[in-house]
Amino acid sequence: MSRAWDTSRAAWFYPFRGVYYFASHRFLWPLFKTRLIPIVLLSAFIYVLLFLFAYLPQVAFLAIFQGASAWINGAFLVLGEGAVVVAALFEAFFVDETLVDIFDAVLVNEGHGELVTTSRVLYPQGDDVVQRLGKPIRSAVYAPFSLRQIVEFIVLLPLNFIPVAGTPMFLVLTGYRAGPFHHWRYFQLLDLPKQQRKERIRRRQLQYTTFGTVALVLQLVPVLSMFFLMSTAVGSALWVVDLENKHDQIGRRPGQVGDFREYHDEDNNLIP
């Protein structure tokens, strides 16, 4: 049990590590400033509208079944609805491109530039890591747009009507689906076929679920949701760094990418 809660290893802690890493590495800040400040203001406007016009009616309806807890679950319900709208805005404003830059920049900064070069040009010099990132030489997607994920998110929203357990169920089930999407870029860099990708997700599904659940909770924070989206991309990249470092420790040659040997780590979790 103590190993499961070891913050240096637990998947659920990587989103928090991403927040600290983002805040402490100035080369990432311009990616937030130049791309997302206008969207942050717009998302704040959306949340204000939802809480003004949708919160109290939904609380009144929930109170019929839940009593006093309706105030809390109603807030999660409105935040979830806002997250759907904000997610649509992310796609509309091409934020995914920013997430790719963040993910790749962290890998390069942590010494795994050879992995990034499978997908984009890296310049040998630059004022900082971000300036070294060149144009992608093939498709570069942090997380693909998934209509199914959005539909499932909307379908699961009514779970918040269930007293006490409803909101945690909603968060975990949504995290179950969303977690693996945070490593889509990693799978893309490794050029994994669909079957191998599915197998790796299956073996690490619990870890992806905890990661996705924590990431979702952070992204439900009004106004800061977009910042947490980017910091979660940092946390995802840091998780990849640790996985790649473990690969190197078992004898992978420097610069060798896509070695799919399997081994057991000291937690007895199968990791590719």
Rank of each mutant, 00 (worst) to 15 (best):
D104P: 06
T98F: 14
F103Y: 15
P144E: 13
L238C: 11
R200F: 07
S146I: 10
L31K: 12
M226W: 02
Y186L: 13
S8F: 01
I162T: 00
L36H: 02
A10M: 11
H112W: 13
E262A: 03
S139D: 15
D259W: 09
T210F: 13
V84T: 12
V121G: 05
R177D: 06
S231F: 08
L36A: 12
L41D: 03
S231Q: 01
E152K: 04
P180A: 11
L220R: 07
Q149H: 14
L156F: 09
Y21R: 03
N245S: 01
V84L: 14
R120V: 09
T34L: 07
T118C: 03
L89C: 07
L238M: 01
G255L: 02
V217Y: 08
A44D: 10
S139V: 15
G74A: 05
F45R: 02
G251K: 09
I72W: 06
S236Q: 06
E110H: 09
A143S: 07
W184A: 12
A44P: 00
Q188E: 14
P193H: 03
G82D: 07
Q125V: 13
L270Q: 04
V164Q: 08
G258N: 04
A233D: 09
E97T: 14
D259P: 01
W71H: 03
T167E: 09
M169T: 10
F53T: 11
N245F: 00
A143Y: 02
L79Q: 11
L171E: 05
F32D: 11
F65V: 10
Q66N: 06
L133I: 14
N245R: 01
T7S: 11
L122R: 11
Q256S: 02
V106F: 14
R203G: 09
V100W: 08
V19Q: 00
F187A: 15
A4H: 05
L216M: 15
V221F: 05
F53C: 08
Q196K: 09
V106T: 02
F27Y: 15
L157H: 08
I137M: 15
P272M: 04
M1N: 14
S146V: 09
M226T: 14
Q195R: 07
